[in-house]
């Protein structure tokens, strides 16, 4: 059974068809990479799934529920966690309070006016921070963290509602190669432990080929390939998209 089903999704900005008739599935527990050159429509695709952008046409299904027209906060409540391309936390809070905020929201306690928030779900928050290796920084102001650590905290926040699907938009953007591998390895481990499915976009091919179970490739808004690492690597269309054919260069020489 597939967790997330995308059916003929399309979105245009002005005359540009940013995402054009894209369909794919994610099976439970699958680690799926969505790759493609800049401007291929990856982020647009993501923002339609997480509810930030309404699709022009097509359908998005998650565990039998249609996501079209739902707000980001409602989609989160269905069990879909997410991390952002540019990671950030709630800067006026400590690291653990960031996680506690998500746990409070998950427990539907947002409108409580009395009990101090800092005393709620502290144990669980520490557990989540321990999973991403950030328990030692729990009581530091989150704005003081290094960027790589912010990414880890963001992951802990995304895990707070026990998601069954995790959407990660360029999880390693802005990180050093060593950090990248560590973070993705961490995600992969957690995903296997908890049986979460993950859809992520990524520019680092090393990361993609080393960790993804399956890879789908977008180019100019269309899905051009879908398969495991080897078949994607050998796909002539994908090579053309990434490396070009040299034709543009030949043409300009012919003049």
């Amino acid at each position: 059974m597939s967790d997330l089903a995308i059916r003929s999704l399309s979105k245009s900005f002005g005359g540009v068809r940013a995402v054009n008739d894209v369909s794919f599935d994610i099976k439970r527990g699958e680690f799926l990479a969505l790759i493609g050159p800049n401007g291929a429509g990856k982020s647009t695709c993501f923002n339609m799934i997480n509810g930030q952008l309404p699709p022009d046409s097509g359908e998005i299904w998650f565990e039998g529920a249609k996501l079209n027209g739902k707000k980001p906060r409602d989609i989160w409540r269905l069990g879909i966690g997410r991390t952002f391309q540019v990671a950030a936390t709630f800067n006026s809070m400590t690291v653990i309070e960031n996680v506690q905020m998500a746990l409070i929201s998950h427990a539907n306690q947002v409108y409580r006016l009395w009990k101090p928030a800092a005393s709620l779900h502290r144990e669980r928050a520490l557990e989540l921070l321990a999973q991403v290796g950030m328990q030692d920084a729990a009581d530091r102001p989150s704005r003081e963290l290094a960027y790589g650590d912010v990414k880890r905290v963001e992951l802990a926040i995304a895990l707070a509602n026990d998601p069954r699907l995790l959407l990660m938009d360029e999880p390693t953007a802005g990180m050093a190669p060593k950090e990248r591998n560590d973070l993705i390895a961490l995600v992969k481990r957690l995903v296997i432990e908890k049986g979460i499915s993950v859809l992520f976009t990524e520019h680092s091919m090393d990361v993609v080929f080393a960790f993804a179970d399956r890879i789908i490739v977008l180019a100019r808004g269309r899905l051009i390939a879908d398969g495991d690492a080897k078949s994607i690597r050998d796909n002539p269309q994908v090579r053309e998209v990434y490396f070009g054919t040299g034709k543009t260069f030949q043409k300009s020489e012919a003049h």
Partner: peptide, 8 residues
């Protein structure tokens, strides 16, 4: 944006 993404 982030607050909405954790259900607020």
């Amino acid at each position: 944006l982030r607050a909405e993404a954790i259900g607020l």
